[in-house]
């Protein structure tokens, strides 16, 4: 089950221990170097959040800040209304993830496992959501939201975020469903499950790794979204965190260190959620593998 152990055991038996070790070291160095490149933006952001404009735009690009300006954080928390906006972002993002997973898994089930004529057409049409350039959709969507009386409510964000999250989610779910053997549905049907039960009891649990993956992607896109959040919401009680952070960008002078501090605050939840869900991806895969 554990790939590393069984593989190295296998190779040990053949007496190629030495070669494998060097290969592994080279591989580890390679992976670590790349890890360094990938983690760099996070480190850079944290350093950046303690600097002032002089340092950010001056010579000190990568180094430690000369003075650790905690005041950037104070200022960001105050200006960005962190607590209120954080709460709003959590509500919007959580609702979006919930709807995306529910709707996308249902639609993907119908598309990926059921037999009907328009199945593939529906799939392509759903993918259409990915193709709309959001800046052009801004005005039409604004008019739609206005007519539905949803401007300045959380729904003005949840509905578009869900709609724009669905195509990616449906694609991922459909592709995963293809890897689940069809015999499973048949067996369930023979046991007397109806179609809803097949979806709910058989397929949905097997989708768990995909659900975690979809949740991560949906989280990232709705957590960071700015364009809709700025245009559809103009009342403080409903604003989200990215809007709060952007409100620190002055028209003529911007204190970038404070923005950096705001971005660190906004990024922390993302990292936490990612760590949690990413663990879940791993766990559900292993759980699934043992069962299957």
């Amino acid at each position: 089950m554990d790939g590393v152990k069984s593989r190295s055991n296998n190779i040990n038996r053949r007496g190629k221990k030495h070669r494998v070790r060097i290969g592994n070291i080279v591989l580890m160095i390679f992976l670590s170097l790349y890890a360094l490149i990938q983690i760099y933006p996070l480190v850079w952001l944290i350093l950046f959040s303690f600097k002032n404009n002089t340092e950010i735009f001056g010579g000190n690009v990568a180094g430690l800040p000369k003075v650790w300006r905690w005041s950037n954080y104070e200022s960001a928390i105050r200006q960005a209304n962190v607590l209120l906006y954080l709460r709003n972002s959590v509500i919007v993002t959580a609702a979006t993830i919930f709807f995306v997973i529910m709707l996308a898994s249902m639609a993907a089930f119908a598309i990926g496992r059921m037999k009907w004529k328009l199945s593939n057409t529906t799939y392509i049409l759903i993918a259409l959501g990915m193709m709309v350039p959001i800046h052009a959709a801004l005005l039409p969507l604004f008019i739609v939201m206005k007519n539905l009386n949803l401007l300045n409510t959380f729904w003005a964000l949840i509905i578009p975020y869900t709609a724009f999250g669905l195509p990616v989610a449906v694609s991922i779910f459909v592709s995963f469903m293809k890897s689940i053997p069809r015999e499973l549905d048949e067996a369930a049907a023979i046991e007397g499950c109806n179609i809803y039960q097949i979806y709910y009891k058989v397929i949905l649990p097997l989708l768990r790794p995909a659900i975690a993956t979809v949740a991560i992607f949906t989280f990232i896109s709705s957590w960071n979204e700015l364009m809709f959040a700025i245009t559809f919401i103009n009342k403080k009680p409903f604003k989200t965190l990215p809007v709060g952070i952007m409100s620190m960008v002055g028209t003529y002078v911007t204190k970038w260190g404070e923005i950096g501090a705001g971005l660190v605050i906004a990024t922390i939840p993302t990292i936490i959620v990612y760590l949690l869900l990413s663990d879940q991806v791993q766990k559900s895969i292993i759980a699934g593998a043992i069962k299957g």
């Binding site: 639609a107 259409l128 869900t162 709609a163």
Partner: peptide, 16 residues
């Protein structure tokens, strides 16, 4: 299974 998704789609994607 499909109608909820289709409804959201009509409002947010097709209409625009």
């Amino acid at each position: 299974f499909v109608i909820p998704t289709i409804l959201i789609y009509i409002a947010v994607i097709f209409l625009p």
